[in-house]
Amino acid sequence: MMCCNPVNKRDCPNNPESLAATTVFSVNEIEALYVLFKQIDRGAVEDGKINKVREKFKLKVFGPNKGGTLFADRVFDLFDTKHAQALGFEEFVRALSIFHPDAPIDDKIDFSFQLYDIKNQGFIEREELKQMMEAALAESDLNLKDDVIETIIDKTFEEADTKKDGKIDFEEWHALANAHPCLLKNMTLANLRTLKNITVTFPEFVFHSQVKD
């Protein structure tokens, strides 16, 4: 198979060996992720608008009708650890590493807490939780009456807020996540275990990975 738009190791702006040493990914997998990254990034670079990166990321992850959501912005912000409003490849790999099936569970708990702590206060308040619930329900096209939402939040705080101070801190979140592993379901992407099969999705990668694991 000929390739018109090759992506090879020399194109990779970061040192894949260094990234491999500090994440769960192999060098080959990081090269494969670079192909994926370029797919998201290419349109933004060509467009020349820095915010286009955010829009491309949101479009890819959340689809054309979910562009302005609370979670889309929150996930992007957690990937964009340098707060550059741009999706750097190294940050992209490090964040995705947390979603690997083999990543430590504590890393997943930490990341998910940051996701839900939308005001970066170090705890989750009742109002924040309600805001996230309403966003989640809207994104899922589910309608729940306000009193049902309030009841669900009451029950959640009754279980999670063991210190009874009206907020869920990291320690309480850790206990809740351990009691309900399903809360971390979205923190694991099975696709990351099969990155070596990336050629199924991105055939152009066949001839250009130069490292054998």
């Binding site: 992850v61 979670f71 996930v75 939780l129 329900l137 669900i152 809740l176 309900h180 696709n191 999705t201």
Partner: peptide, 24 residues
């Protein structure tokens, strides 16, 4: 949904599907 806690409901939502990154 009433049987779920709030975080279960949120984590089930369509808005948290990073798997879409891998759709070609």
């Amino acid at each position: 949904p009433e049987a779920l806690n709030a975080f279960e409901l949120i984590s089930m939502s369509a808005g948290l599907n990073l798997g879409n990154l891998f759709d070609s």
